[in-house]
Design a protein around this nucleic acid. Structure first.
Lengths: 148, 148
DNA sequence: CATGCTAAAGATAATTATTATCATATCAAG
DNA sequence: CTTGATATGATAATAATTATCTTTAGCATG
């Protein structure tokens, strides 16, 4: 399981650029780097973590830019925020349908797919609540590494 | 749907007290009030919110105590933390199996039950990951109130 | 290819959320 | 009641995120 290696990076970058254009977002050096870093990452990094990684290549970038850019991307549906139990927000660029397992010991997050679930329709009572736009499963447990 | 009124409060309080004793937790005035407030709440309040509510009755309580107490309760399985997309932790005392819908507009969280899902077994690939202890569904959407 | 409008970046600082430290107060066992 | 351990409150520190304001840089246009 664990975060099957993402399609191809260049493909994602091209799509990203055109999505930015369509959304009237300027394609800046920083945005490209932030998106690239997130698209490559397989660990659903927090803003701080992305900042550290990007800083190596782009030492002048500010943490603030990372936060703002992630918020912008999210608003435009280019990336998404992973539901967690911690108080630190975590992100991913992978937009294909999938779900998450989080290790309550080390905090690592992994992906898994479950099309059976995706296709099932929700219980009737949910319809009364409103309009559902996303269905996430969040499993919590102890990963194999932490178990020993 | 929306948070069916919790069993009976006195029953929950009695259970709570004995659970504390069993876990070697002192049954203090503050702990009782924090638990009571959370058990009554139907909105999955954050620590800050609980603090405000409790302060009315117990003006000397400190925010810090609320945080520490919630952490203690959670560690002992007396309450649980709700997975959200925000950076503020939210809690609930209801331990019966249920799932959550969150409104991406107003941030409100509601419960729903789905025993069909609870009974389904997870896809095989998850077993390789480790041992799952909790299965949460987090639906995101726009609640009826926000829709108009 | 130069220019100007506008959105984005960086610096700085403010907020918000949460956690640590330590002296004092309180629970519950004897 | 007294005692010993644990929890609380006060205070302050840290972590996470967001706001403000000036400067910089996309990019559409001439």
């Amino acid at each position: 399981m664990n975060n099957c290696s993402q399609h191809n990076l260049t493909g994602m970058m091209t799509k990203f650029t055109s999505a930015c254009r369509k959304a009237d977002l300027k394609v800046t050096h920083q945005r490209l780097e932030i998106y690239r870093e997130l698209a490559q990452a397989e660990d659903h990094p927090a803003a701080e973590m992305l900042y550290k990684r990007i800083s190596k290549r782009l030492p002048t970038i500010s943490l603030d830019t990372v936060y703002r850019t992630l918020a912008t991307f999210e608003k435009h549906g280019l990336i998404s925020r992973v539901p967690t139990l911690e108080s630190q927000a975590r992100f991913e660029a992978k937009m294909a349908r999938h779900h998450h397992v989080v290790c309550s010991k080390c905090g690592s997050i992994s992906d898994f797919i479950w099309s059976g679930f995706d296709e099932t329709h929700l219980p009737a009572q949910v319809a009364d609540w409103g309009k559902v736009t996303r269905k996430n499963i969040v499993l919590v447990g102890i990963c194999a590494a932490c178990a020993r």
